[in-house]
Amino acid sequence: MARVAVVQIPGVNCEYETARALEVVGLTARIVRWNEPASVWSEFDAYVIPGGFAFQDRIRAGAVAAKLPAVDRIAAEAERGKPVLGICNGAQVLVEAGLVPGLHPGRVEMALAPNRAPRREGYLCRWSWLGVTPGPGSSWYARNVRPGQVIPMPIAHGEGRFLTADPEVQERIEIENLVLYRFVAPSGGRAVRYPFDPNGATLQAAGITNRAGNILAFMPHPERATWLRQVPLELKNAWGESRRAAVGNWEALEGPGPGRILFQSLASNLLSPSAEGARPGREARS
């Protein structure tokens, strides 16, 4: 059994569906409030900071939550090799806490800035297309993704633009393949324009990991694409075809959607670690 903490910071609003998505891949999820006793945090094998508006995005998205003692404790567990996934607002928290990209661990090396697209400011909710570039995060978060595979998932954010003002950081995340997920065109090619590039992020980044690959700051919402029923019928892709073919078939609709691959990847590592060999921190836990 692997236990995952879904961190409920005030203002977070995706904790229930995120917990359900973790449960459906065989993990045991518990929603843990930000102010629960310090001792609870070490009990878990993995941590997910879900989407929402932690502390109302006061000061900046993720800025206040990044300073919470709970995030300190999760950072310490990540140091021991446990996986930490930040989805949307959770990604903003991880970047503001200096955990991603973490070239110099603890140092803040990026921002998640307001979306930038021609004549389209503000919050944007729509399905987008993702591609994977293998990197240190592959085994935790993109196992079983085929080369060239295009994965549709919805985004819903106003501040999703990964950005660094430090040219060295820019270079390292590129060379070291820390941009695990990026926005692509439906064909899988580079996303050169809105809406395929929805927010103007550097390197079209949708998800960036740390060097160890166990921490992922991910802007799209895999928990909103974990069941086939969540996929729009008219998505122009094999997923849309599967969705249309499943009209009238509830069992098929309750089957996997495109985003489940990310949770499955996490689960297969947590549930059968032998397949991946020893993970750092595993000994410390047992």
């Binding site: 229930y16 989407g51 919050y123 919805p154 919402h221 969540q230």
Partner: peptide, 24 residues
């Protein structure tokens, strides 16, 4: 497109895709 149609994960058919929204 400014409205979050996906949160809670219950949505099957969204506004603009059909004459009514559908959820489970």
């Amino acid at each position: 497109r400014y409205y979050d149609t996906e949160v809670q994960g219950r949505m099957l058919i969204r506004a603009g895709e059909a004459d009514a929204s559908v959820l489970a």
